[in-house]
Write a protein that binds this DNA or RNA. Structure first.
Lengths: 191, 191
DNA sequence: ACCTGAACACCGTTCAAGT
DNA sequence: ACCTGAACACCGTTCAAGT
């Protein structure tokens, strides 16, 4: 909650990163609509005027937010790629990460940014970079499972789109057993 | 574009439905952030004050928008269910509807509403109703293809989540052949 | 280098008054 | 029954002035 942050006594002067972190907090809490300069300034304990020392305008804040988001997502992909485990284990790990809905904050940010990307070029560019990285990783993992390149591509698209789409459904619309069975279908080895 | 609407000479008095239609237009064009009372009033050719004769506040407009959206989606499901065609043909038709990205306006509205649903109870309720209806239909179609109930459930979740997730990816991140192959994987008949 | 304070424009909301 | 017009609060943006 931003109200907590508001109560904190500010000591050091703020830098751009602090504003971006606060903006992501508000994005997670209330969507793009909630990323507002004045409430953010209040949450950080300064006047809204000081915002314009760090950023040209609200748009520049959104761009900085997008940059930080895509960098973070791509770093996370790299981390998974470096795991020294069999590909099936990594895929199961990724599936669990999404389907267990263990990170609602990250998900809220992701969906808010994808909504933005519908009408916003810079957001669309950030989303595309992240999708390409994720698809490359997952395709490599399916390749490691024995699928031929074209099939590995298709399975990767299926796997990634599934996890992503499912994470946007209301959890209670589907029982856990069905979700588990869906993942198993995707992980059946090539004959 | 709303600017076109703005130019139109208004003749009959407005009703709530006209405001909701305009709001959905703005939602499609610019996301939830763009659904604003004053610009909407201007687009409809009236003063913003008159908005409050039809709705208690902006929130009430959003709720009416959500209601109209979920009713429309559920009516569309019913239409598909009434087709007198083999289940595989209906599934292929549904797949084409999504993967060909032929309805960007509907998609923009859908993603904006799902973003809202992250933090907004009424939006979450509307989304859930739509998902349940769609999953029920798709599960019935897979059942018609010869899958046992539990497998039909899992395939339905896979199919629907896939189409939905894929529609949120940047199209250019994946080639058409891979997308086609992914759908074929889902439609392989039970052995 | 970073922030304040005052100013102005835009939008949400209210409401008395108009037709 | 539906709309206008004026009022006020809130937020984006600017900028001169402060430390």
């Amino acid at each position: 909650m931003t109200s907590r942050r508001q109560a904190e006594a500010r000591t050091a002067p703020l830098d751009a990163a602090a504003w971006v972190a606060g903006a992501l907090e508000m994005l997670a809490d209330g969507g793009i609509d909630a990323v507002r300069v004045e409430p953010l300034a209040k949450a950080l304990g300064v006047t809204k005027g000081s915002f314009y020392w760090h950023f040209a305008d609200r748009r520049a804040l959104l761009d900085a937010m997008l940059a930080r988001w895509s960098e973070g997502r791509i770093a996370a992909i790299r981390q998974q790629a470096e795991r020294r485990e069999p590909p099936e284990a990594v895929l199961r790990h990724l599936a669990a990460l999404y389907t267990r809905h263990t990170n609602p904050r990250g998900l809220a940010i992701e969906i808010a940014i994808r909504s933005l990307a519908r009408t916003d070029k810079p957001a669309a560019k950030a989303v595309r970079a992240v999708d390409e990285g994720r698809l490359r990783l997952v395709a490599a993992l399916f390749g490691g499972l024995g699928w031929k390149p074209a099939d590995a591509q298709a399975r990767a698209l299926l796997f990634y789109s599934y996890l992503f789409g499912e994470s946007l459904l209301d959890t209670r619309a589907v029982d856990a057993q069905t979700r588990a069975r869906a993942v198993e279908t995707l992980l059946t080895p090539p004959r």
